[in-house]
């Protein structure tokens, strides 16, 4: 039972990683690629960590796995803001649906 749940969480995680890579490749400008990278990959990591924590041998190991997630969330939130701010300062215009 726990194995099946864990397996499902792991597969969901892999899917979000895949979606993040897909977004990075398909989205048209740096801003939208940052969206894909930060949001999808972090969700993928969250699912994988949750799946592994379910099977962990001890409470400390499960908590350690789960503590990686907020650390990586905080890191990628800060990094994507820093890169977006820099891109804006450098005057990089966002991609628009229609040519202006």
């Amino acid at each position: 039972m726990i194995e099946a749940m864990s397996g499902a969480l792991l597969c969901a995680g892999a899917f979000f990683y895949f979606a993040g890579t897909l977004g990075l490749l398909r989205f048209p400008d740096i801003y939208s690629r940052l969206h894909a990278l930060a949001k999808a990959d972090n969700l993928g990591l969250g699912f994988i960590l949750a799946g592994l924590a379910l099977q962990a041998d001890s409470l400390a190991v499960a908590l350690k796995l789960l503590v990686i997630w907020p650390l990586s969330l905080a890191a990628s939130a800060g990094v994507s803001y820093a890169i977006a701010r820099r891109a804006d300062r450098l005057g990089i215009a966002p991609w628009q649906k229609e040519a202006r």
Partner: peptide, 24 residues
Amino acid sequence: NSVRGGLQVAGLALRGPAALRPAM
């Protein structure tokens, strides 16, 4: 909401740039 955000961006990535309506 970060789960919601991940789901949304995954859906957009699957549908491709035509689904985007980006704006500042």
